[in-house]
Amino acid sequence: MLELRLLQGSLLKKVLEAIKDLVTDANFDCSATGFSLQAMDSSHVALVALLLRAEGFEHYRCDRNLSMGMNLNNMSKMLKCAGNDDIITIKADDGGDTVTFMFESPNQDKISDFEMKLMDIDSEHLGIPETEYEAIIRMPSQEFARICRDLSTIGDTVVISASKEGVKFSTKGDIGSANVVCRQNTSVDKPEDATVIEIQQPVSLTFALRYMNSFTKATPLSNTVTVSMSNELPVVVEYKIAEMGYIRFYLAPKIEE
């Protein structure tokens, strides 16, 4: 028996919007720790890891570990039927082949339940080692989204170069080239507006912009984004989900033959 009651149902709606274009089908894993997911895109270039900790739910009952295969497009269709202020409860029976999403309006005058068919998904689970990254950049998530969107109108790939001086995003295309440099800036009114660059050593990596743009669909989940890089390793783009956990995107770099 599984029953997870999330007061801020809009968080789950935003999570689905953030990942449904990257991943078609995924297993949601439920354990005493929380509600989580790890899934790769079809080309195995990008991976999303989601964690919503048990403590973040108003009620969290998970009698035994459960893995539920869901089509994310269908799940998104169902969650779009929940109001932004609704409380969302996820319910499933052990060994059942459906999951139920229950939506309660804030003043309890409307209660809906949507039952969705589960599916069997063979998913590869990758072991991601704990890594000390050589460059960690924290910046406003909207600024990061803006840069990725702007550069993708010029080129297909972005070179992200981080040094003590700042972080440079560069692209080249048929019509020309572009560079955006962000310097560390901590003299801001609100901490979420700061750009903070922690560097152990300079890092420069090249990535496909279409994946970066896809990751920025998580922007509504957090005011800030953290980009962690080491030379010759996948980048991690992390959006913290307040009080609950995180959504992390891993993207393999393009590397010279």
């Binding site: 790769m40 080309s43 195995h44 270039v45 990008a46 991976l47 590869e124 689970h125 990758l126 072991g127 991601i128 080692p129 790939t157 090249t206 496909a208 390793l233 996948p234 891993y250 393999a252 770099p253 393009k254 590397i255 010279e256 033959e257």
Partner: peptide, 14 residues
């Protein structure tokens, strides 16, 4: 030329 790597080049399968 740059080659797009996959995540399996960096992470191991459980």
């Amino acid at each position: 030329d740059l080659n797009q790597r996959t995540l399996a080049d960096f992470f191991c399968t459980n």
